[in-house]
Amino acid sequence: MNIIVTSLVVLGSIAIIAAVILFLVARKFAVYEDPLIDQVAEVLPGANCGGCGYAGCRAFAENCVKTGKLERDYCPVGGTDVMKRVAALLGVEAQASEPKVAVLLCNGSSACRPKLTTYTGVKKCSIAHTTYAGETGCKFGCIGFGDCQVACAFDALHIDPTTGLPVIDEDKCTACGACTKACPKLLLQLRKKGPKGRKVYVACKSQDKGAIAKKACANACIGCSKCVKECPFEAITVTNNVAYIDDTKCRLCRKCVAVCPTGAIHAVNFPVKKDENV
């Protein structure tokens, strides 16, 4: 009986003292945090992809709440819906933005772009790029070791083993932009998703002159400017031997696609025309 009482007293007093210490310490080191941060973080997708430019969703929320503005901050993953809810929490006007998606500006598949050398170092684009321009004759094209695939937090990018190029799953792509930063050749671009995902773009960044580009890759843009003349909306420009279609001006008429001699202009997600028999 005595033992039980003693142990109860001893253990009980230890518990009480510990509780008091814990309480005091918690009070002393308490950090005040705006509860709004939690609420904003709750609304965000929570993928911590860094697409907004902050270290993660919570850092984004902290910054929004601290500045109280949304002018520069935008969550590309959550898109307009999420930003509206964030704006409502902060009591400011939401920024509208069109949904975007990543596209690959290279169509030099392994079939049309022959390999001239074999790279045996570390299979990472970033490391290969600092030593060599690439295994093929095109120094602007995709290296194909899949740094973008590793960077993608949403499983939306995969290297196709037959073409050696990454394929973007547009349903999964959140336009966070991680892949655009991972690619040492800057071949991934965030473009307007377009109505029903339809878009037209030049899938090549080769600045080589026509003959050299063509020799290195059958699908290369040779800078012939046929598309520029064809475009009724002046959406296409050719600089440094490579054409570029401005997605804010393009009206998806696809006239350029028809005249491109190398097939470097891609039109995606359009319904197949019956008379084309593709």
Binding site: T117, T118, Y119, T120, G121, T131
Partner: peptide, 9 residues
């Protein structure tokens, strides 16, 4: 053409 092997040192 011969395919040379490239790698870093």
């Amino acid at each position: 053409m011969n395919k040379w092997i490239v790698s870093s040192s």
